[in-house]
Design a protein around this nucleic acid. Sequence first.
DNA 1: ATAGGGGTTCTAGTCACTGGAAGGTCAAGG
DNA 2: CCTTGACCTTCCAGTGACTAGAACCCCTAT
Lengths: 131, 131
Amino acid sequence: MNISDASTRAGLPAKTIRYYEDIGLVTPARDTNGYRDFSGSDVHTLTFLARARALGFSIDDCRTLLALYADKSRASSEVKKVAEEHLEEIERKIADLVAMRDTLSHLVRNCHGDDRPDCPILDEMGGIADA
Amino acid sequence: MNISDASTRAGLPAKTIRYYEDIGLVTPARDTNGYRDFSGSDVHTLTFLARARALGFSIDDCRTLLALYADKSRASSEVKKVAEEHLEEIERKIADLVAMRDTLSHLVRNCHGDDRPDCPILDEMGGIADA
DNA sequence: ATAGGGGTTCTAGTCACTGGAAGGTCAAGG
DNA sequence: CCTTGACCTTCCAGTGACTAGAACCCCTAT
């Protein structure tokens, strides 16, 4: 099938699929006219990638996961290790963002937001501590 | 003062400060030998930038905020608007990450993580729904 | 013959730095 | 005077994961 069909089925933009081929994640066959010809298994790989990416795994992790997926004798502990490390990374990001949100929402709440110039948000960033 | 002192005081790497000059966020004076010579106000700007960046504002937002900071007759509503939009963006990111975390931690919990090959994490990404 | 809607490659841009190379400057010590 | 070492300078390239766009080819229908 053509790239646009593969794109629809995997839920990935054609551009992204070409990029994935570029970096060796998929290797679709080629028609005589040079068009890519995706097999069912290519689409399956792309779908796998779409799901893994949606879970936030890096391309590098995806490469590892694909290899484990293909290896029917892998140990599930290897997969779990990759997932757990990624999970920790996500937790760290959430913690960072929550800290930002808390500080920022506190500042936003304290800013009256009218025509007057005084503003605790700018005060904070300019180094004037609030009580 | 030299860049390394400015770096220490603002808490930003020298490389980052040079980059900020490149994109016009700071414009330190120059000594006759070509070295940058940071004034107290330059350091203040850098500190402002460090704080704003730590709150997750984009460089573009920082530019806007710096302009508002310099404009003593700004309306606090303008600042609040920038901050609120950024806050919404942060909330979106948190929601995305929390969704990822929930899915992923569920999968990780259900993966026994031993020498056997069967693994719900790969099953999920390969499209085998779990009950 | 041509119009359109596919497909192809290639380059360059995104964001906010960061690493590294090649070289100039300055103060202290031998 | 020379060297050492710690500064400083500029410029180029790379990061991650795409994405925009240009220039061009291919296929089908009218």
